[in-house]
């Protein structure tokens, strides 16, 4: 068994157990309906069922992970000591993609679809391009971003009636 395998049980086991516990703690806050036509099983029953099931299953994989870890160490395996910084560095494109996507959707309402799409597409193309190819990517990326932003906005906002946010461009009467 590889070092990584037990981690794939222990870490999700802990996170999901905590999530299930949080979910279960929220269930009593649901207002029960007790009027005419109420059902013997209230609106809390199924959330308790799913929350309980998730807690049990998460504990199952957590315990399985702990057993696997013990077995691994007993067989002479060494615990992995990769630093957090290394892990972040290894996944920097993924983290950058999530950050850019989050900023894109967060500012789309106030700044507007066209500007945010232009920036996001340009930035995301660069993130997904190996750094050594960036120089020759700038111009095509900018053209793609501008075309995508303009065409998609026009087609969906004006031809297909999707309420894409105009944002700051509203001063131009868009």
């Amino acid at each position: 068994m590889s070092n990584k395998q037990y981690k794939l049980d222990i870490i999700p086991g802990i996170v999901l157990s905590l999530f299930a516990a949080f979910y279960l703690l929220q269930v009593p806050k649901i207002v029960e309906f007790k009027g005419l036509g109420s059902t013997p099983l209230t609106n809390r029953f199924v959330p308790y069922l799913w929350g309980g099931a998730l807690l049990l299953l998460s504990l199952w994989i957590l315990v399985r992970g702990i057993i696997r870890r013990k077995k691994y160490l007993a067989e002479g395996g060494r615990a992995d000591k990769n630093s957090f910084a290394e892990a972040v560095s290894d996944k920097r494109e993924v983290i950058a993609s999530f950050i850019s996507l989050t900023i894109y959707v967060a500012l789309m309402g106030s700044v507007g679809f066209v500007i945010m799409t232009l920036i996001y597409v340009f930035v995301q193309i660069l993130i997904l391009t190996p750094r050594e190819n960036w120089k020759k990517t700038y111009l095509p990326a900018l053209i793609t971003a501008a075309a995508a932003a303009g065409i998609l906005f026009y087609v969906f906002r004006y031809l297909l009636n999707v309420l894409l946010p105009v944002g700051v461009l509203s001063v131009f009467g868009l």
Binding site: Y104, P140, A148, F156
Partner: peptide
């Protein structure tokens, strides 16, 4: 794909 995927994400957002 590095050009296609960001546009797909935008379409998904739409």
């Amino acid at each position: 794909k590095n050009f296609l995927l960001p546009v797909i994400v935008v379409l998904c957002g739409i």
